[in-house]
């Protein structure tokens, strides 16, 4: 699993994670403690719905950096809530857990949903077999994927 990058210079940090995101959350927690940063943690375990998380993120004061390590479906909803709350891309870091991904085909611009753990994945529109990059578009809320033959 990926790890968070500590973004210095924010006044406070909000960390939201579920059981699968506990590992990157723990690593970030150590960094925040070492840096003496002001932070708040929210555990989004079972029974915690999106409304509760949305309220938390939108009630934060200016200068808050948002980190979330959650199951993909919930994370996508949280991303929408964060954008509505006015967070800028540089104030957000997300780590999705689980194999479900939104994939943006660089060739036909179709977004496919895949549960495939191992690449390549097939674009559900143009049928190309795609290699999924680590680059995620906040606009499309999807990972950029390119024809595997291109490599």
């Amino acid at each position: 699993m990926n790890s968070f990058h500590f973004a210095a210079g924010h006044l406070r940090y909000l960390l939201i994670f579920d059981s699968k995101g506990a590992e990157p959350a723990a690593s970030l927690r150590n960094s925040l403690i070492n840096e003496g940063a002001e932070f708040k943690e929210l555990y989004a375990g079972s029974g915690r719905d999106l409304k509760w998380i949305s309220e938390e993120i939108s009630s934060q004061k200016n200068g808050t950096c948002l980190y979330a390590a959650l199951e993909t479906g919930l994370l996508e909803k949280l991303e929408t809530a964060a954008v509505c709350a006015g967070y800028l891309p540089e104030e957000i870091q997300f780590i999705p857990s689980g194999s479900r991904r939104r994939i943006f085909c660089a060739h036909c611009h179709h977004i496919s949903i895949t549960d495939c753990e191992n690449p390549p994945v097939q674009c559900s529109s143009c049928g190309r077999y795609l290699k999924v990059s680590g680059s995620r578009s906040g606009y499309w809320q999807a990972y950029l994927a390119v024809d595997r033959e291109a490599f």
Binding site: I57, S58, S59, Q60, K61, N62, G63, T64, A85, G86, Y87, E91
Partner: peptide
């Protein structure tokens, strides 16, 4: 300026 929530310009 210290009282505003995120998403304020």
């Amino acid at each position: 300026l210290y009282q505003y929530r995120t998403g304020t310009a």
